[in-house]
């Protein structure tokens, strides 16, 4: 009975969605806020990538909220899985070293990939206001670079959780600090400071590159911690 009700609901929803989309002005919507932002972003913020100026300048407070949501998710995952993670690290240390010979090719190719991942990640983060990309994408690359070796070979990671926590806290603190500095000097939270610079060069758009660097470090540290947590022992029933 529940099945038929669900099917009926899905059929009705699909009918509703298709009819609504049929009446939408497809590809010609008025874009009230978008037009205003497109017209004034180059003078007000000075970043070539307008999506970046929306994410960090016009809606910077939302990005702060998003970072806090990600932090909450990562800490709840740590809360749910923390116990099994801390106990089996000593046990697998020896078997990890023995396994190293078995996975020679994958481990060596990951060692070759590691500096490339770091360079690409930092490039994506630092050029976030000029080209597509930014803190989130580069942060994912950094997280993968630092956690990939321990995922392939679970015994070999040093598990320096302390430095991850430190980087995460430092990045979040510096994000808020830049915002509060803007609040003190300019009167608005997260207002871009330091002048706009030459349009299109690396040192332009005020504090946006610094903010994106903080976002990238924070996202990278959080996701790396998340991957370390999830990479635990198999669940025994």
């Amino acid at each position: 009975m529940t099945k038929y009700t669900s099917l009926l609901f899905i059929a009705g929803l699909s009918f509703l969605l298709f009819v609504i989309v049929g009446y939408l002005p497809i590809a010609e919507n008025p874009m009230v806020a978008g037009k205003a932002i497109l017209g004034s972003a180059q003078q007000e913020v000075g970043s070539a990538n307008i999506v970046t100026s929306v994410v960090l300048a016009y809606r910077g407070l939302d990005t702060l909220g998003e970072l806090s949501i990600l932090f909450a998710a990562a800490s709840v995952v740590g809360l749910l899985l923390g116990k099994s993670y801390s106990t089996d690290s000593v046990k697998t240390q020896k078997s990890g070293q023995a396994k190293e010979y078995k996975q020679f090719v994958v481990l060596k190719s990951l060692d070759l990939l590691f500096p490339m991942l770091l360079v690409v990640g930092m490039y994506i983060i630092v050029h976030g206001h000029l080209t597509p990309g930014g803190g989130f994408q580069g942060g994912v690359l950094l997280a993968v670079a630092f956690s990939m070796r321990s995922i392939v070979n679970p015994g070999s990671d040093k598990k320096n959780h302390y430095s991850i926590t430190f980087i995460e806290g430092f990045a979040g603190f510096s994000f808020i600090l830049i915002g509060v500095l803007a609040l003190i000097t300019d009167g608005n939270f997260l207002q871009p400071l330091l002048g706009k610079g030459e349009f299109g060069s690396l040192w332009s758009a005020g504090t946006l590159p610094l903010l994106y660097l903080a976002v990238g470090l924070k996202v990278g540290a959080e996701l790396a911690g998340l991957l370390f947590e999830l990479n635990g022992e198999e669940e025994r029933v």
């Binding site: 919507n29 874009m31 806020a33 978008g34 932002i37 497109l38 972003a41 307008i50 999506v51 929306v54 994410v55 809606r59 939302d62 990005t63 998003e66 949501i69 990600l70 998710a73 990562a74 989130f136 996202v219 996701l223």
Partner: peptide
């Protein structure tokens, strides 16, 4: 329009947390 793109940028990152 840059505004939906910025919204989706946020939504995808939150999605992986969920």
């Amino acid at each position: 329009d840059p505004v939906p793109q910025a919204l989706v940028l946020t939504a995808i990152v939150i999605g992986v947390g969920i």
